[in-house]
Design a protein around this nucleic acid. Structure first.
Lengths: 186, 186
DNA sequence: CTAGGATGGCTTACACCGTTAGCCATACCC
DNA sequence: GGGTATGGCTAACGGTGTAAGCCATCCTAG
């Protein structure tokens, strides 16, 4: 059936493959995510996977698509009914990345193949951020970039050993609060 | 001689190898940066490279070390004598990444092997940012994270087609100006 | 009830990857 | 002149994603 990006439309077997792949990814990282290892976990041989996904990239895209949905849910929950949505969504963003570091890397490392994703899933994960930024797209994008940068620097171990990463997060979130700093500039 | 991280201490041949590797990287991207391709460009065979570098990671580290130095120079020049150092360094940061997108990816994708770098080179590239942030480490780190996040989102094509990326940069830089937004937070 | 097509396995194989082992020519130095 | 580094080489290993082609099972249509 050549599993689609829509998880509802996936063959049961395709679902099992995605699950196996994700388990390997989360437990052992990107390097361990090979077609042979995935097949092993299911008791089959690597070439058989190609009966379900056209290539590795599509399989990864299925994982990524699911992850975007999970992010969307987490951000929506974090923002709903919060009296400090920017803060709570940022916290949820950070938490997601730390709970699934390898998954986060998979989602953000490469160029995004939107054509392989469930349509709209990327936008859905972004909307809460947009709203928390007071409806200002540019501010929302800047805040998003801050959160992403912060996360990547954490995950790639870029801060010096004693660095107060929490304080940097606080600074950034404060800086992007609606009502601060206008548009201007050079 | 097993080329060191210090470019001064590199064998002439090691310098040629680093140069060849960097040319391939910048011209064709990370996937093209293979030991066989590097060797090809020098008219030798891949295993011969191991007479000069213990492994591929060390060769990459040499490229990364050089890149940090170039960044440091660029940031120092951008900050020196500027009456808006934060802005000018951010601009230099963005320019460097856009001038060398594959190099930038190589520098930031993986965990940093500091032990393979020329000592101090990383700190040197960071200092101008720290100073431009008014000497506040947390603010400097937040601003750095913003710049890095912004850059990665640009390079991985994450913004929607019509997005005003310049405006997002402006917003972020404004947000991190010294004298705005205090430490506080939850 | 049987023919046919889809489904989902399999083996074999290819080109590429980083890397090791071991051989050998040149060049320099005591 | 002998010994030692230097810097090439070939052959090979185990890993990668993936293509080609074979075959058993099963569902469905006639």
């Amino acid at each position: 059936m050549m599993a689609s990006s829509n998880p509802e439309a996936r063959t049961p077997r395709a679902r099992e493959i995605v699950a196996a792949a994700r388990e390997i990814l989360e437990a052992e990282g990107l390097d361990a995510l090979t077609m042979r290892r995935i097949a092993d976990r299911l008791g089959i041989r690597a070439p058989s996977l190609y009966k379900h996904f056209p290539d590795k990239e599509s399989l990864e895209a299925a994982i990524i698509s699911d992850a975007f949905e999970e992010q969307a849910v987490a951000f929506e929950q974090a923002g709903a009914g919060s009296n400090d949505p920017l803060w709570d969504i940022a916290l949820a963003y950070r938490r997601f990345a730390h709970a699934h570091p390898h998954l986060y890397r998979l989602m953000t490392d490469r160029e995004l193949r939107r054509d392989l994703l469930l349509p709209g899933v990327e936008a859905r994960a972004g909307r809460p951020v947009y709203e928390a930024a007071g409806g200002d797209v540019d501010r929302a994008r800047a805040a998003w970039a801050f959160a992403h940068g912060m996360t990547m620097l954490e995950l790639t171990n870029r801060f010096p050993p004693g660095a107060d990463v929490d304080a940097a997060w606080r600074q950034g979130i404060e800086a992007f609060r609606p009502g601060m700093a206008g548009g201007g500039g050079g």
